[in-house]
């Protein structure tokens, strides 16, 4: 169990990060709608891209965090690694959902369809299903220690599998005799767009780290509560 001093300093940092993300999110929203120019071809719909891209990065970053903490958990068996994996999984699921929803909203006016079986879309959908399996697995195992072990196994196997899923879906589509949806946004972005994207990315990152720390603290409290309950036979 961490000492009181470390906890307090973590709390201060987390609070600072929380305020930083509030400021950054406010700036990035202003930049997305007021500063960044409208896309000549796509119009206002392109602005969803500033949310879509950072969310996609965080969805995959979360799975990477799960992968690393799963290995660490199986090697060390310290509950802190399991808590980190749990926290990252929940955030990853939220961001994967955001990616799918924003992509769908953008796809409707631009591609003329809510969904297409493109390689990236399909991989992200499967990633979403793997996250779902991850939560179900934890929920259906009564012993928390065993649940943590099972989740770690799924975290490792799943992470290794995602690139292969992507590859297989890409081949499936490219070998398939159908036109491939062109997604190139034309030549390089103007500077104002790039600046907006960088600020939004920073805002998402700050928000992500803040949420991860807070989620981790909640998970630790849950564990401590369960332990206290066990001790006092409630």
């Amino acid at each position: 169990m961490a000492s009181v001093a470390t906890r307090r300093s973590a709390e201060t940092w987390s609070r600072a990060l929380g305020w930083l993300s509030v400021v950054l999110v406010a700036i990035s929203v202003a930049m997305i709608f007021l500063y960044a120019p409208s896309d000549r071809v796509q119009g206002a719909a392109q602005r969803i891209f500033y949310i879509h891209l950072p969310a996609a990065w965080l969805a995959y970053l979360s799975f990477f965090i799960i992968f690393v903490s799963s290995i660490a958990y199986l090697a060390r068996r310290h509950p802190r690694w399991d808590r980190l994996a749990r926290s990252a999984a929940e955030l990853g699921f939220v961001f994967t959902t955001i990616v799918l929803l924003t992509g769908s909203i953008w796809g409707r006016p631009i591609w003329g369809t809510w969904w297409t079986w493109d390689a990236r879309l399909t991989t992200t959908l499967i990633l979403w299903f793997i996250y779902l399996a991850y939560f179900m697995l934890r929920a259906y195992v009564s012993d928390p220690e065993r649940g943590a072990r099972y989740a770690a196994v799924l975290g490792i196997v799943g992470f290794v599998d995602v690139p292969i899923i992507h590859m297989s879906v890409r081949w499936w589509r490219t070998l398939h005799p159908e036109p491939i949806v062109v997604r190139a946004e034309g030549p390089a972005m103007p500077d104002t767009m790039l600046q907006t994207l960088v600020v939004t990315l920073l805002a998402f990152m700050a928000l992500y780290v803040f949420l991860l720390i807070e989620k981790y603290r909640v998970e630790r409290m849950k564990d401590e509560l369960a332990e206290l309950r066990l001790q006092h036979g409630v």
Binding site: I126, A133, L137, V141, Y150, D161, W171
Partner: peptide, 30 residues
């Protein structure tokens, strides 16, 4: 082996197995 110790194991096995074996399904069918 993992699903056998969970509640609702009949549900758990396909939920785990189907998304992760997608590359097998795609390449074998193709």
């Amino acid at each position: 082996v993992m699903a056998a110790t969970t509640r609702a194991r009949e549900v758990m096995l396909p939920v785990l197995l189907f998304p992760l074996s997608l590359p097998i399904v795609i390449s074998a069918v193709r």
